[in-house]
Amino acid sequence: MSELTNKEIGEKGCCDIIEIKGLEKWYGDFHALKEVDLNVKEGEIIVICGPSGSGKSTLIRCVNFLEKFQKGSITVDGTELTDDVKKIRQVRSEVAMVFQHFNLFPHLSIIDNLTLAPIWVRNETKQEAREKALKLLDRVGIKDQAEKYPNQLSGGQQQRVAIARALCTTPKIMLFDEPTSALDPEMISEVLDVMVELAKEGITMLCVTHEMGFAKKVADRVIFMDEGQVIEQNTPDKFFENPESERLQLFLDQILTQ
């Protein structure tokens, strides 16, 4: 059992770690999120899919307050997200995010990318931070690239580093915003493998992705969004084999014909 998670399998389904109630967001006049309700239990793996513009990225970006919302509420591990800077920081210390375009810091080495937050946000010593970072790099298979710089690595390697960087802050929740969409096809599996390993360890994950294979393998629930609202959600088998709503059927047809 990895020392990075401090819960055991079996406790999944105990409490709601994320509560989203009646969430509404507008970009100017555009109604981007329409009364979204979503509860996520600790340790759950949720995959969110849907056509582009459906609001999936916007939704998960609201969870760590990268996007502000106008109506409704989001509560993360007991803390309600408001404009209060303290609350935002509290939530962000427990939620980590992996971006579509990696967003590694190009002027810092890989190891410095990882130790930045632990040193400056959690006030760890340089020694501790580096040891932890090296262990994580080892887990994602990048240990010998530690002193290299992001632009010297391939896309798949960079995204794995991004995942390691997110894990450095020992988060309870990981948000993935289309983590493999910017990768060349041959590099997608190396990143998905890391994500599958993570899922097995019990961390709560919210993934926006088109990778249905991943969803079938590890997801507890799959959620379909379209035009700013949640249309349907179900366990992976029922979701893919027995879509109930017309829009989901249409969407699955489109994906499978690719």
């Binding site: 109604h31 179900n234 109930e244």
Partner: peptide
């Protein structure tokens, strides 16, 4: 329940 009820598009609160 798998399907959610459909919501309507509204104007932003002003």
């Amino acid at each position: 329940m798998a399907i959610y009820s459909l919501k309507e598009t509204k104007q932003p609160p002003q």
